[in-house]
Nucleic acid binder design. Structure first.
Lengths: 222, 222
DNA sequence: GACGTTTTGGACAAGACTGTCTAAATTCTT
DNA sequence: AAGAATTTAGACAGTCTTGTCCAAAACGTC
């Protein structure tokens, strides 16, 4: 009964939603490379394969579009973050190797991908102009991810794999170390190769474990 | 003879150079908060306390002005960096405490100050548009600073204060750790308080020394 | 195939900005 | 204090951009 009309209303005409996402993707690309002020609606429309009027129909105006894009990308990036976090090695056979793999997933999915770059740029440039928008990013994103990672580390400490004073600090430092070698090149827009990523993750984990690693108590491994 | 005219030509009229730097400072502020595209020459002129025509007289056009500003700030920031590096504790009495102080100077002078923020923003946003400009930044700045810091760490390793596989990696990681707690808030433009800076530096050094610290061989201390 | 909705393309007004020009005012040098 | 150079304010042309409007075309649904 209402089901049909309801889903129709929600799903819209399929190509309508297709256009919607295509606009958001295009807008993200353009905002990212030109900045908010430098972004041009005509260019966004062209890149989305859509007429300018359609952009205005869907999103009202430049600022509204910008906000929609940031929201969307924020949510997607956060989802990705937690998804990646789920692959944390809670019961490692080989802590070093498994942490390196985890670090690699983190850099690939959450630091070097397009969404993350977009967010870094936009937060840095427009963060102070839209406090609410970016407070949301901070609290739902880095804030929660950091606590979640801290909890995983705390668990490893309990099992005797790590020796930690403060799991929250350790989590933040883990992120920092992962970024240490990549920071400069990602700022200039380079995309580090697989090789480079691996070396970098390995360096990070090596240092992290030098600082916090420990042999697990034997009884608990299996 | 020529001395007079020469110095005249170089020094210019004193207020002329005063205006020049005032324009550059104002431009830096405006570019920083609005981005290149969003920056408005009239605003820059007003903020420099100068007429628009004067801006054009001195710097020709917006892009030329931008390049001049980036160059100037890059050089200043680099100079500051090396100056700060000179206070590295080569013969520490108390390695932990002295590294913390050094880290604090580094965060204050080279990470949280206005010039550094400007450069981070501009490199992130316009880095790919002006490769030469920012290659210069990278090679003369982070690149050389990192090696220089690595050399200092290597020395501490020789004296037995540290145990290092690769001083270059250690240097990059030291920077990363120093930034670990500050990264998110500086992205949003917050200015961490003195308290926060100290805690953050202390966390960084604690972890760094857990990973690389060592009691120095007794013979070498005095 | 008819009907309602969405999309298109192009025209358009309004505003903003860059960069130039000029004549008058101010400042520097001597 | 005179002469040279710099600075100013304002006007101005030209361009670009945003956001609106509209009639025709395309699309999706029944």
């Amino acid at each position: 009964m209402t089901a049909d009309t309801a889903t129709d209303t929600v799903l819209q005409s399929r190509s309508q939603t297709a256009k919607r996402v295509s606009i958001v993707e295009a807008a993200a690309r353009v905002f990212c490379s030109e900045g908010f002020a430098g972004a041009n609606i005509d260019v966004i429309a062209a890149e989305a394969g859509v007429s300018r009027q359609t952009v205005y129909n869907h999103h009202g105006d430049k600022e509204t579009l910008f906000i929609a894009v940031v929201r969307e990308i924020t949510d997607r990036a956060n989802a990705r973050f937690f998804e990646t976090l789920d692959s944390f090695p809670d019961r490692p056979q080989n802590l070093h190797a498994e942490l390196v793999e985890f670090a690699l997933r983190l850099t690939r999915n959450c630091i070097c991908n397009r969404d993350s770059k977009f967010l870094r740029k936009m937060i840095l440039m427009e963060g102070s102009r839209y406090p609410a928008l970016f407070r949301h990013w901070r609290e739902e994103g880095p804030g929660r991810v950091s606590s979640a990672l801290a909890a995983r580390f705390a668990r490893l400490a309990l099992t005797g794999f790590l020796e930690l004073d403060d799991p929250d600090v350790a989590a933040r430092q883990f992120f920092a170390l992962i970024n240490a070698d990549l920071h400069v090149s990602t700022m200039l827009g380079d995309n580090p190769g697989e090789e480079q990523l691996r070396i970098s993750a390995d360096n990070a984990v090596k240092t992290f474990l030098r600082a916090f690693g420990q042999q697990p108590r034997s009884g608990l491994s299996a």
